[in-house]
Amino acid sequence: MISYPDALALLLGEADALESERVDIDAVSGRFLASDIVSPHALPGFDNAAMDGFAVRAPGEAIAAGSTYLVGAMHAAGDDTDDYPDAEACEIATGARMPARFDTVVPVERAERQGDRVRFVADERRGQNVRRAGSDIDAGTVALTAMRRVDPAAIMLLAALGIAQVDVVRRPRVAIINTGSELNPGGPLPLAGIHDSNGPFLASSLARWGVEATGRTRVADHGDAFYLAVRDALAAHADLIVTTGAVSAGRFDFVPAALASLGARELFHKVAIRPGKPLLAACFDRGPLVVALPGNPIAVAVGYRFFVAPVLRAMAGLAPEQPRRARLDVAPSTREGLQYFGLGEFAHDEGGHPIVRMTPAQAAYRILPYTQANVWWSAVEGRVDSVDTWPLDPTDAS
Rank of each mutant, 00 (worst) to 15 (best):
L259I: 02
I25V: 15
I273E: 07
D136M: 10
A235I: 03
L259N: 07
P369W: 10
Y4A: 09
G287R: 09
R324T: 11
A281D: 00
V300I: 07
H353I: 04
F284W: 13
M51T: 12
V308G: 08
A347M: 08
E266S: 13
A292S: 15
Q165W: 07
L279K: 06
D388L: 03
V375T: 15
F32L: 08
A363Q: 06
N178T: 15
R131A: 11
L293E: 04
D239V: 00
A49Q: 04
H75F: 02
G223I: 03
G263E: 09
P256A: 05
R231I: 01
N296A: 14
A373M: 12
R119N: 00
V380Q: 10
A225Q: 10
A319E: 13
G295K: 05
R366M: 09
N48F: 11
M98H: 05
G95R: 04
D349Q: 05
V330R: 15
T145W: 11
V174G: 00
E19P: 04
K277A: 11
L289I: 14
R274D: 09
R173H: 10
A164K: 12
A326D: 06
N178M: 07
I37Q: 04
I298R: 09
T145N: 10
A146K: 11
G342F: 03
L279W: 06
L259F: 07
V271N: 01
A17I: 09
L392V: 03
D6L: 11
R170N: 06
N374D: 15
V330E: 15
D221C: 09
P354Q: 08
I25S: 04
T141R: 14
N374W: 04
N198K: 09
E124F: 12
L368K: 12
A159R: 15
L267T: 11
R57L: 10
P360G: 06
L338Q: 02
A77Y: 12
P185C: 08
M147N: 09
L158T: 06
N374A: 10
A62E: 11
A229W: 05
A76F: 10
T179Y: 01
V28P: 01
P188F: 02
V219N: 00
L8C: 10
R218A: 11
L280Y: 04
P354A: 06
V130M: 01
R216D: 05
I298K: 06
V38S: 08
V247Y: 08
R31C: 05
S67Q: 00
D86E: 15
P85F: 07
V230P: 03
I194W: 08
L191D: 12
R126K: 14
V130D: 00
D221Q: 09
P107S: 10
G199I: 00
V255C: 10
A319L: 13
G351L: 15
E182F: 06
R125I: 09
A100Y: 11
P256H: 08
A133Y: 02
G186E: 15
V105K: 03
F54M: 02
F54H: 08
A55H: 00
V330Q: 12
L191P: 14
E345I: 14
I63A: 04
